[in-house]
């Protein structure tokens, strides 16, 4: 299972897309900021903007939450914002999406980025969290679905070498419309559509 498209160096593997997911900025629900421009996001992550006041928020220091090196969310994020991992001035480095969400929920001055699917489930359960649009496009199921959301990624199953009939049957099942409800339950966009 790989949560990004394969790199050129990985062409010996074959990928089967199961679903689409997006990555977006998350803030605490009580943070008055409702949108940030791409430039502002870059400036926050590179440490040029250190206080929420500079982007129209309260007078409080920004806590920048970044992902650990090697995570595909980090790779896609820096690729989209044309950064390198060295440029980012983080206050907290996290592993998985859930840890990122808990960190932002525990600190109203934090900014992070996570999978839209993961954030969506939490927001539906009443977690004090909100997703910000990127480049003016709201981070929702439908913008990821129609491809207009700029920061999206495929979620893939990957295989190496010959696929056995059993593996093929599983891949077919995982890509079929039978599992659509399960994929949607996770906040992701099913591949079949």
């Amino acid at each position: 299972m790989v949560s990004r498209a394969l790199k050129p160096a990985e062409q010996d593997l074959k990928s089967y897309t199961l679903a689409q997911d997006g990555i977006s900025i998350i803030l605490h629900r009580d943070n008055p900021i409702s949108k940030l421009s791409n430039q502002q996001i870059v400036d926050i992550y590179t440490g040029k903007i250190k206080n929420w006041q500079q982007v129209g928020g309260q007078d409080a220091a920004i806590t920048v939450v970044n992902k650990a090196e090697g995570r595909s969310t980090l790779e896609l994020f820096i690729q989209y914002f044309k950064l390198t991992a060295k440029d980012i001035q983080a206050d907290v480095v996290i592993g998985d999406n859930e840890q990122g969400i808990k960190t932002v929920v525990g600190n109203p001055q934090a900014i992070g980025y996570v999978s839209i699917g993961a954030a969506d489930i939490n927001i539906k359960q009443g977690t004090a969290l909100k997703l910000l649009p990127i480049n003016g496009i709201a981070a929702t199921f439908s913008t990821v679905q129609d491809g207009s959301f700029p920061l999206s990624r495929p979620l893939n199953l990957i295989t190496q070498g010959q696929v056995s009939p059993k593996q093929q049957a599983f891949i077919d099942f995982a890509q079929s419309s039978v599992v659509e409800d399960l994929v949607k339950e996770q906040g992701f966009v099913p591949h079949a559509q």
Partner: peptide, 15 residues
């Protein structure tokens, strides 16, 4: 993560 860190964040961010 859910108790101590938010407490420290209130005292002195980031937590």
């Amino acid at each position: 993560l859910v108790v101590l860190v938010p407490l420290i964040a209130r005292l002195h961010p980031p937590g």
